[in-house]
Design a protein around this nucleic acid. Sequence first.
DNA 1: CTGCAATGTAAGCATTGATTACTTTGCCAG
DNA 2: CTGGCAAAGTAATCAATGCTTACATTGCAG
Lengths: 210, 210
Amino acid sequence: MARRPDAKAKKKPSRTYHHGKLREALIEATLRLVEEGGPEAVTVREAARRSGVSSGAPFRHFPNRTVLMTAVAEEATHRLHAAVLAAVEPIAAKPPLAQLRAIGRAYLHWASDNPTHFAVVSNRGLIDYESSSSMKRENEDIQALMGRLLDAAGAPTGAKLAARALVYGLARMRIDGHLPQWGVSSSGEALAAMDAALDLFLDALLRPRG
Amino acid sequence: MARRPDAKAKKKPSRTYHHGKLREALIEATLRLVEEGGPEAVTVREAARRSGVSSGAPFRHFPNRTVLMTAVAEEATHRLHAAVLAAVEPIAAKPPLAQLRAIGRAYLHWASDNPTHFAVVSNRGLIDYESSSSMKRENEDIQALMGRLLDAAGAPTGAKLAARALVYGLARMRIDGHLPQWGVSSSGEALAAMDAALDLFLDALLRPRG
DNA sequence: CTGCAATGTAAGCATTGATTACTTTGCCAG
DNA sequence: CTGGCAAAGTAATCAATGCTTACATTGCAG
């Protein structure tokens, strides 16, 4: 795996010193750290190690650990946003209920497939949410999309919060370990149960009221 | 506040050494630490400091930080359980819907009033959930109660998971900072919105289906 | 009273986030 | 070119933390 202490830069083995793309390398390394052990496993020094630089180098690009985590959360949010959009856009002509179902499923599946990344995105005590305009925008974009669809489906006022809470709750229950009965690692059954709960909720919510 | 380096034990100022009730003192100190700065702010050394013992002493009672946190989660779960029971028991004769509402409200209000304690209870990555039989019991007790009430109300299969997810989702959204529009600190409006979402969900779920 | 287990202390280790002073590098104005 | 300067590395250091080990004190049981 490791040939020599150099072989770091893409083309010029400049003997170490001046990584060239350290910022991106650190984000990538941190993404992998999150993947491997969750947000708590992230260590600035380990990210530096994996990027082949000294322990102080990361602080040239990120003032502190939180900002590094925020950059990772930004990337993760981007992926989640893309996954959700990729699920709705092909069926933009179908009825709102179908689109809502697709959004919820995409969200839940992404969270289930990327539990540790979802943990970074959702727990805002770990990041500096307000500082990232892109993360805010993509987040609000999903909420707005859901809002429009709920309105179009004639959902009652307050349904937006309930819908958000249900999907968010299912996703977090999974990563927080509250779904042991459906298998901790075998995501198949848990996903099926979550999908069923989502369907139930949407059907109940959008069923015409007397 | 601090008169002398002694004045620690209740009655016998035994010059330090042998605290007598260090275990409980540590749990109490940790509870306060959680209260002040969330689960991440908990430090074994600080708990020791506040209990007036050396930094190694806590390890005589808790093998590691996680076990200390688990003890705190146990206590917090006990309080949450008590709050929920106190809300339902007086109205055990009323219809299931009313009882379900009361449970959800009590849960949400407790989580809202004790956000950091709720964080400890809910995030099982921070504790050793399986090792605490009392915590498991009280937790499953609430779930079972909700399950019975949902069955009695004629809720469809799968409603149990949806109901748990909705309440859990609302509670976590609040502590995770996903409800800025309802005021971060002014819990009044956020609570009202959560209650409304809960009502909406229960009404939709339990409305007779065709 | 004695001796042992429980419970505390003191000191130390490895690790971490962060800072500081120094060094190397790329690049741009002249 | 080239001289110099800002950007981006390094090395050394600090304080804090979780946890361990060796030792000290205590109280209690026999």
